[in-house]
Design a protein around this nucleic acid. Structure first.
Lengths: 122, 122
DNA sequence: TTGATATATAATCGTATTCGAATATGAATT
DNA sequence: AATTCATATTCGAATACGATTATATATCAA
């Protein structure tokens, strides 16, 4: 992570409360990023995304695998759709979900690595 | 990300609603991970962590840089402490915060890369 | 067209989060 | 010990979120 802000921040501290363009940009990004992360920060949604990281799944499959109610799964998927973390494909009655892009894949991969990798504590 | 669950999941789908040990473990991890991510998923907290990724900072420095109120910064830092994403060091009156471990650093780095890297849209 | 299956949406309700204002603590200085 | 500076905590109001139940839509088969 390049230290983009640091240099400017010393000015910032001297010059008072004006916000530098750099910080302003960082703040806008922080909003986007926190929206994205909020969509991710839910037990069921993480599980859904982990499963989808292995390949596409229909809603019914997801329900069965995770033993969750239909409405619940559908709602969480709707949230993920809203934030564009997943995409859908209809095949007959079924709708198949998969991860929307590589950004999602990267994040899920890091999270999986940290929380499911190596020495499990339980 | 190794496909740990997939193999077992086919059984899962056949055998009905019993939850396999693999899925059970995954679910526990998902809870931990979502707690961790919730602590992260907040505009100010992300900004704080981004700054701390560049090195330790006192609370006052953080307040000034981000133009946030004292109570607000302190509250968000408390949240980050609670989830053990940051550590503190006292030097006289000031308390210096820094990132608690490499897991945090990794996540922040990926997020920074996705949302602050390359082609900025604004 | 009717019925069945797959998925989505809406309404409700309890719970959790957030922000601001006020207050409290703790360390240094006088 | 009183004051000041740095930081933390508490409280209340506003809002957001999640689980449940019920209902709606879409597709297919008969």
């Amino acid at each position: 992570m390049p230290s983009i802000v640091s240099a400017k921040i010393e000015e910032e501290l001297r010059d008072g409360p004006e916000v530098s363009p750099e910080l302003d940009a960082l703040m806008r990004n922080a909003r986007d990023a926190s929206d994205f992360l909020k969509a991710l920060s839910h037990e069921s949604r993480l599980l859904l995304l982990c499963l989808l990281a292995e390949g596409e799944r229909s809603v019914t499959e997801l329900e069965n695998i995770l033993s969750l109610r239909q409405a619940s799964v559908s709602q969480q998927l709707a949230r993920l759709r809203l934030e564009e973390l997943v995409t859908t494909r209809r095949d007959g009655k079924a709708i198949y979900y998969s991860l929307a892009n590589d950004d999602v894949r990267r994040i899920i991969s890091v999270i999986y690595d940290i929380f499911c990798g190596r020495d499990q504590k339980a």
